[in-house]
Write a protein that binds this DNA or RNA. Structure first.
Lengths: 340, 340
DNA sequence: TTGTAGGCGTTATCAT
DNA sequence: ATGATAACGCCTACAA
């Protein structure tokens, strides 16, 4: 039992070292020059007593808590773990704690968490909203606390954002399919309000028009980024009696759901239907058939968001900025390319 | 811009309502009876000013921060997201924030985080160590802060723990394979120091002896719960020239790694080799072949750990307790059972 | 170079 | 029932 049950404070250290608390504080923080002898005595006392500064008291005094809030829809969604890890690693490097919040993308939960974090005096908030969190983005931008939005950008609110170019990513995917000779490409999109879903949908359309190819409206579906919604969309697609030779799904989970449905109905992937997903979640490479998909540098996006947030916290950067990462097409079996 | 840039405190509310700060505090916390009229005036002021109590100041005064620390090896390991979600949901229900820490299972990182959290004045710590974190378990038990260990229990330190019966789970898996007629079962275990790995290994051996079946030492491998280590173990297994007709891997990632290796070498799963994993991570059901595995109620374990921790924090429970959950065999294709 | 003292925003103990 | 006021542990002018 090395740690005693009673809290030991800076005052105890001061007494043990025979100096004032100011001196202890100065030594601990290197905030002023002190004599070597006192420094040594204090160091000894700190060691002896195993003193650890009370971060809460310091936070109250300094008016900064050295912690940030991270609001995401759901850590169980395979898209998020890598992002969270990127955030956590970057935050730790700067001595910040990260408070994790799962909102399930529900606006009401998001708001609860925003208020909660604000009350907790976090120095900044990293926010990934659900499909319709526009209201909360406005709430956030009204907060005195710095905020960085991740993956989804806001329509109205002027908040800093880190995104990956969803428009480009979708074009990569669709061009790939067209290059493989596919002409009847179905699209399973994300929630219509979500900015990432909108951009990917635009990419899908624009690629078609650039290549002077028509889009068959009957081949368009809306999902919510879950396995189930992909599965159901594929069933509807098959039952729709339209002919199709490819699917571009706006994320990997829906792509996998779709493939499951297709396979159950006896269709061969990629021979009958080529499939491309989005995100390159870890499972994509192990799935059979391995999934062709668009990779987002999720880990890097997380750590970049922290970097921006910290700059805003320290005041090094005050203007709102948007950092855009580039997507990358990962070709695997499910699209039937030779390289796969 | 609803929130002003200047912090508004209880003092502002008191002034606006024309009462003392003590009265405001009492009303906000319901800690004493106050006249209805004053209560109304205060409520109006709170509303008007959009006052939110400063949790840091409160934490300093109360000596409890209403936050807990969660140390895990790596959120990117698919075993953890569900557990983290269980923790977070339970914590939120009680108004606690959870600070997430990824240690990569490295003792040095774990210790850094323990000190960090202690300094942050967390009210409790949830700890999942890596392979050899026995030293940190002792450090934790010396802390004045309540601690609950998850998934791995400590050899020496007397810490509360939430576990799933790994011994039983392994027996379930091995019995299943034996019941399917397999007699030459290879075992890919986890790190030898880890308590969960030890228990699963014991289960493997004891099932064999109960069934009066010999264990071929040449069929035993040690991994570290990663895809790669499973892959390599399978390669070694094949190259070892021993005949074998089944593999029990101590987690799903290694099972999947092993199947990849086996398949590359032209072996058919489950016909040539039946494979059973452990954990039932989400991917297990979607993997081809779908993985037979032992499920742990990970989400429930996370929330149970929080419940115990909070009881220790509030003092409702002071003795160390161990809660053990039951594992469940999930039969799918990879073991070749009829039900699959 | 070192020490004294005030205040960060709360809660809670006193009086009143 | 309500109001002053003293902590909580720390940092930092301001003095010495």
């Amino acid at each position: 039992m090395k740690y005693g049950k009673t809290t030991i404070t800076i005052k105890d250290v001061a007494r043990a070292a025979g100096v004032s608390i100011a001196t202890v504080s100065r030594i601990l923080n290197g905030s002023a020059v002190v004599s070597g002898e006192l420094a040594a005595r204090v160091a000894a006392a700190v060691d002896e007593l195993e003193y650890r500064p009370n971060a809460v008291a310091r936070a109250l005094k300094e008016r900064k808590s050295r912690s940030i809030g991270l609001i995401i829809p759901d850590i169980e969604n395979p898209f998020f773990p890598a992002l969270v890890r990127g955030v956590e690693d970057a935050a730790r490097q700067h001595g910040y704690a990260v408070i994790l919040c799962n909102s399930d993308g529900k606006p009401a939960e998001e708001e609860r968490y925003i208020q909660f974090l604000f009350s907790k005096q976090v120095d900044g908030i990293l926010f990934i909203g659900g499909a319709d969190s526009e209201g909360n983005l406005e709430l956030l931008s009204a907060l005195p606390t710095p905020v960085v939005t991740l993956d989804r950008r806001s329509a109205a609110a002027k908040l800093s954002a880190v995104v990956c170019d969803n428009y480009q990513g979708a074009m990569l995917a669709v061009k790939h399919l067209i290059g493989l000779g596919r002409r009847q490409i179905a699209f399973i999109g994300g929630p219509v309000q979500s900015s990432s879903a909108i951009d990917r949908r635009r990419g899908f359309f624009d690629t078609h028009s650039q290549q002077r190819l028509p889009v068959n409206e009957r081949l368009l579906f809306v999902g919510n980024y879950t396995f189930d919604s992909g599965y159901k969309a594929a069933i509807a697609l098959i039952d729709g009696q339209q002919s199709f030779d490819a699917i571009f799904a706006a994320n990997d989970m829906m792509a996998i759901g779709a493939i499951e449905a297709l396979t159950e109905r006896g269709l061969k992937i990629p021979d009958d239907v080529a499939v491309v997903g989005y995100d390159d979640i870890r499972m994509a490479g192990w799935y059979k058939p391995a999934l062709t998909t668009v990779r987002q540098p999720v880990y890097d996006m997380g750590s970049a968001a922290v970097d921006i947030l910290l700059k805003q916290i320290t005041g090094a950067e005050t203007s709102v900025c948007e950092q855009k990462f580039g997507p990358e097409l990962i070709v695997r079996k499910s699209s039937g390319a030779k390289e796969g």
